[in-house]
């Protein structure tokens, strides 16, 4: 507007230096403190990632100098190449690439199957609102939190009996089963939050259970499906224990291979290769995280949201 400087000028000339307009902005120490704290915290969170990256770009002689935080003098991707294709994960020395492909082979079907089943379950459960249904619901919730250790041994026996132990279908089955509580809750809560009238209207129009599900509910469930995909993808990719036990030697996922690379050392520990392998393993969930933004946060809260 330009009227403000004019008016305040006028006022000053009239000797009326009254408060006028917005409060003067003061950069108070408190404000500086806020940013100071946030920057320190951000450093704490950043440093490991930074160290990972620069270490992976150094050669071993440079690492031995002990300059953990120094930028690489002579950046090289040799360690990355070695980690990908040559590092030893035990007796074999084929790098982490096998683990990468194994993880893809495990994650893709597991995510799809668990979401399909979870969404149907959640839809069905959203109808069941009696006290008995709440019990099942509680049981499921308990399942989402129960330590794997408590059920792992019986599951080993079961999958062995079914001939699935140590096979790809076996690990997919395991992931689907363990993902079911959280997937079911996620979709149940979502479907329960939709207006009931929507469902009633579809019933009046003569749609049946499955028609309502496929033609009305699922198209509306796209956002929550994205949340589910993110949740399951990062969860299954990051899994260590289940892959270690159920996947079998041929299908060990990337996290297990990574741990093997780091612990299997003949002679010198190659920290640069270790860190390159670590970044490679973290890459998929990191990309998913950065690309998904708000959906990731919603996924986190999903286990906790009330129905």
């Amino acid at each position: 507007m330009g009227s403000k400087p004019q008016t305040s000028l006028l006022k000053r000339s009239m000797g009326l230096d009254n408060p006028w307009g917005p409060r003067p902005i003061k950069t108070s120490p408190a404000r500086m403190g806020v940013y100071g704290f946030l920057i320190v915290a951000a450093l704490f969170f950043c440093i490991p990632l930074y160290v990972m990256v620069i270490t992976s770009l150094k050669g071993m002689p440079e690492i031995r100098l002990g300059e953990l935080f120094a930028l690489p003098n002579d950046p090289t991707v040799a360690a990355w190449l070695k980690a990908w294709a040559e590092a030893c994960t035990g007796v074999q020395c084929n790098g982490i690439k096998e683990g990468f492909w194994n993880s893809i082979k495990i994650t893709v079907p597991s995510v799809m199957v668990s979401i399909v089943i979870g969404s149907i379950n959640g839809y069905a459960l959203s109808f069941w609102r009696s006290r008995g249904a709440n019990l099942i619901f509680g049981l499921l919730l308990f399942g989402a939190f129960v330590p794997f250790q408590v059920v792992i041994f019986p599951l080993i026996i079961f999958t062995r009996e079914m001939g699935m132990y140590g096979t790809l279908p076996g690990i997919v089955f395991i992931h689907t089963a363990f993902g079911m509580p959280i997937m079911t809750l996620l979709f149940r809560n979502y479907f329960s939050s939709l207006p009931e009238e929507l469902f009633k209207a579809a019933r009046v129009d003569g749609a049946g259970f499955w028609q309502i599900f496929f033609q009305i509910m699922m198209p509306m469930a796209i956002p929550i499906t994205i949340v589910a995909v993110i949740l399951q993808t990062t969860g299954i990719w990051n899994d260590f224990l289940l892959g270690l036990i159920f996947a079998g030697r041929e299908n060990l996922p990337m996290t297990v291979q990574l741990n093997n690379i780091v612990t299997t050392t003949f002679g010198v520990r190659e920290y640069n290769v270790n860190m390159a392998a670590t970044i490679l393993t973290a890459l998929v969930p990191l990309v998913v995280y950065l690309a998904s933004g708000k959906y990731f946060v919603r996924g986190i809260a999903a286990g906790a949201v009330k129905g």
Partner: peptide
């Protein structure tokens, strides 16, 4: 709310800030 321009007086006192 912070205002963009002008004044507010309450009971004969300029309380803008």
């Amino acid at each position: 709310l912070d205002i963009s321009a002008g004044q507010i007086w309450i009971n004969g006192r300029n309380v803008t800030w």
